[in-house]
Amino acid sequence: MANAASGMAVQDECKLKFLELKAKRNFRFITFKIQAQQVVVDKLGSPEETYDDFQATLPANECRYAVFDFDFTTDENCQKSKIFFIAWAPDTSKVREKMVYASSKDRFKRELDGIQVELQATDPSEMSFDIIKARAL
């Protein structure tokens, strides 16, 4: 089914902003939403914002895609960063929304080149800071 993508288009801005996040590190995170049959940029987070700020921007009953640039220090005291892709689909969101987001995810993810870790979450516990840290290492 994934080979037949759901037909959602991806606005160029999504790719551009993602490139900025990746190369220039202008943003800490970007959230995307599907609107009028295409994926558009929803919110942008400045580099000073934290993971908590990021979590607060995800709506409690709507689906979103998100990209988060995670800075951390490895056991060898080495500064590193990894780019996370998060598919946010809370239980309380509409079934239609979940279907749209789940079936368009693969297509959208392929547009964003350079994602290192991917996770899907249906409630905040599935994307807690500990999990992010564990996945990054």
């Binding site: 993508a5 759901s6 037909g7 959602m8 079934v95 239609r96 979940k98 279907m99 749209v100 079936s103």
Partner: peptide, 13 residues
Amino acid sequence: SWFIPANVVFQVR
């Protein structure tokens, strides 16, 4: 049931 409504241009599919 939600498959088709969710996939707007499902002709492609």
